[in-house]
Structure formats: structure tokens, C-alpha cells
Design a protein around this nucleic acid. Structure first.
Lengths: 206, 206
DNA sequence: GTGACGGTCATCCAAAAGGTTGATGCGCGG
DNA sequence: CCGCGCATCAACCTTTTGGATGACCGTCAC
């Protein structure tokens, strides 16, 4: 199975290459250190599976790269490999077309299993990720909409309502409406309290 | 040179082992996945250098483990390897006795050089880390007072100025004065931006 | 002792944020 | 088809926050 590794850390790339060299079913056909290179290499090397880091220092981030790759003709499966199990990241990755979401803490066996599962067309989730998703579906009253999370993330980055409205091309009134809904759902009544609550519940990362 | 690897991620451990296997001057004598195991293995294996991750999920954190290791008789050099170049982390690591501070983004050559430098008794810092330290010594005005941090922590917890004033038995005006000073020092102009900046610089935890 | 710094407080004003109500359009499932 | 959630916007009002000053007191260093 041809695998492409995408990660900006040489250490992590070497680690994945080393781990994947043990079972002879995997063949690492290339490595990319950012999103742009990843898209190019997918086209050139035609891997079956892409192991994609979400956090990448410069250039295109993992979610965007995933979206671009899955938009290609006959795309490979993309398995996201990341350090954090945050709701927002998982949802965005899955929404972007990821076929799996793994934590770097996972033992090698889980990594192998996830690659096989993804290549077989199934969705592969780390056990902690899966349980988090389960908690989410049976606690829908906390669920913020994508738009609400998007706005809350900008608020958490220290932006004012006006700045958020300009960045998202919507009116300030709309930002305030979304924020009011967020406050309702989180049971708070200020932006800083909302940020704290959302970080606590892993809805966003700071 | 005998090296002990300490990291809670199997992927990173494998990566370091793979990278260090290339030059024949290094010999990885063991791996630990948390701080407690690291201290035990240092005593048992007597490595020359310990490659220590700062962020470890459960158990003893990297700074504490570093402090414990450097307190041993005839301690090995500890080189800290981490993802983030935050001021507070660097200082805490150095204060705990680390002989080096490397970013995981560093190319392998830098890693090798850092190990050699540390083993030779010198201090090894990644270029970005070194430049950050330089910026810090010529910008000491960033230091928040204890009181300012205390107030900022309550703000970060979502409290209003009024709530903070009541909790600390001071007037709201005083809270506002402290906050204004905090904004000045952090170069921001709102509470949420201050919280973000302070968390980024590890002045507070959320 | 004088000056710098930290902590305390006050006042006044402007800007931002929050609360309420109401309205439109869109897509989706019963 | 109708309701519901989501996203969008507006107008109004209150509260909170931020900005600019100025002031007092204690401590610590020079």
C-alpha cells in the first residue's frame, strides 16, 4: 500500500517512516512538509493513503490540504494524524473529506489498522476520538453550529465584533446574533467566559 | 554517545530513534514514555544525554522530570525537545537544569549538533529559541506583576471587572487600571486579546 | 531623601459589547 | 406543505469596557 507522509516535523516524518517500514504491506512513497507540496506529490506519486498532520507551521494547513486532495480526480484516502482531540478539528477534518482521524499518542497497531481501514473505504477513528464523537451526538444541546464555532474562534483570537464581521463579510449585527446564541448554548454571558467554556469543552483550541 | 529518549508519542520515539541511528556516534540505550520512567531509566542505564519532551500527557511533566534528573548524582545532560518556542517554557526548562532546548521542527543536523554541544558541557539552543531569548533580554518590560497576572487569570476565567474587584476586595477602578497596564505590556487593547497573548506567552494557563 | 515602581482609587468620556425584539431566506425532514 | 434550525440583518437600549488623567501611599534602592 503506497503511503504519502505529510508533516512539517522531520522527527515525525522519520518516525512514521520507521514505523511503517516494519509491516511489509506499507510502502512510503514520499514525504511532504507542507500542504502545497502534499497536493503536488499526491498528483505525482498517486499514493493509496495520505497521512496528514493537521498542524503545519507555514503555508497551507492540513484541513485545506485535505480538502484540496479529496477534490482531485480519483483521490487517495486521507488519514489525519494530530496531537489534539478537539471537537472542532475532528469535525473540520471529516468535513474536509478525511477518511480517518488518529492521535499521535496512538500505538503503532492503531496506526496500521487505521491505514488499512481507510484504504478499505471505511472511516477510521482513534478510540478517544470515537468516544468524543459519541458524547457529542448524545449531547446535542451543546452543539455549536460550524458558523458559531468559526466566530467563537476569531473571538478567542482576540478579535472584536467589528473585526470578525469584516473578516467573514457579514454585518456586525450578525456577529452579535451568533455570539448571543453561543452564550445561550454555553450558559455564559460574556466573550471571555464563552472562550473559557469552549476551550474547557474542547470545542475550540486557544 | 548513549542517549535516552523520553516522549509519550510512539511516533516521535520511533522518529528520534531512526534519525539517531544514521550517524554512528549515537546509541539509543532506551526509551521512556513519561517522566517517572525517565528518572528510573537514567539511574539504570546511565545515558550521557537525555532527549526530553516537555509536553507529556499523564504523569510527571518534562520540566519536573528534568529537575529530578539533574538532581541525581553525576547526572546526564538533558536536552529538551518540544513543539513550542514559548518564553515561559524555555525559561522553566533552563531553570530546571536543561542543557539545551530544541524545536521538533529542527532539521536532523541541528538535533545532532545540539546533542554534541550538550555532551560537551555547552548550552545548545535552536536558532529560533536563541533569537527569542535575545528579544527577551532586551525587552524585559513584558514582565507582568503578580497582581496583574492574578487579575488576568480571573479575566481569563470569564469574570467581569466587577466580579474581579469583589473577589479581590478592591475597587472596579483598580481592576481597570491593572488591566490597562496589562494591555500596554502585552500590546493589545481588549481582554480577550490579552488572554490570548498571555496564554501564548505562557504567562497564564487557561 | 528622592525617585521609581507597584498597588490603590476616582472621574469623565467614548467605544464596544450585551439583551431584546423582530424580520427575511434557505434547506431539510416529517 | 409546514415547521425548525441556521444564517443573515436591523433598531433600540443598557451595561461593560477601554482610554486618559491625576492622585495617594508604601517600599525599596540609590
Amino acid at each position: 500500500m503506497k503511503v504519502l507522509i505529510v508533516d512539517d516535523h522531520p522527527v515525525v516524518r522519520a518516525g512514521l517512516r520507521a514505523l511503517l517500514s516494519v509491516p511489509d504491506e506499507f510502502e512510503v512513497v514520499g514525504e511532504a512538509c507542507d500542504g502545497a507540496e502534499a497536493v503536488q506529490l499526491v498528483a505525482a506519486l498517486r499514493p493509496c493513503v495520505v497521512l496528514m498532520d493537521l498542524q503545519m507551521g507555514d503555508g497551507v494547513d492540513g484541513v485545506t490540504a485535505t480538502r484540496q486532495i479529496t477534490a482531485l480526480p480519483a483521490p487517495p484516502k486521507v488519514v489525519v494524524l494530530t496531537t489534539y482531540d478537539s471537537d472542532a478539528d475532528i469535525l473540520r477534518a471529516v468535513e474536509a473529506g478525511a477518511a480517518g482521524y488518529l492521535l499521535k499518542e496512538s500505538p503503532p497497531e492503531e496506526l496500521f489498522a487505521a491505514l488499512r481501514t481507510a484504504a478499505a473505504g471505511e472511516m477510521a477513528l482513534s478510540p478517544p476520538v470515537a468516544s468524543r464523537m459519541m458524547r457529542r451526538v448524545r449531547a446535542p444541546q451543546l452543539a455549536l453550529s460550524q458558523r458559531e464555532i468559526e466566530i467563537l474562534e476569531l473571538i478567542a483570537a482576540g478579535r472584536s465584533n467589528r473585526e470578525v464581521s469584516r473578516q467573514l463579510f457579514i454585518s456586525e449585527a450578525t456577529v452579535k446574533t451568533h455570539l448571543a446564541h453561543v452564550y445561550d448554548k454555553l450558559g455564559v454571558d460574556s466573550r471571555t467566559a464563552a472562550v473559557k467554556a469552549a476551550v474547557d469543552r474542547r470545542l475550540i483550541r486557544l
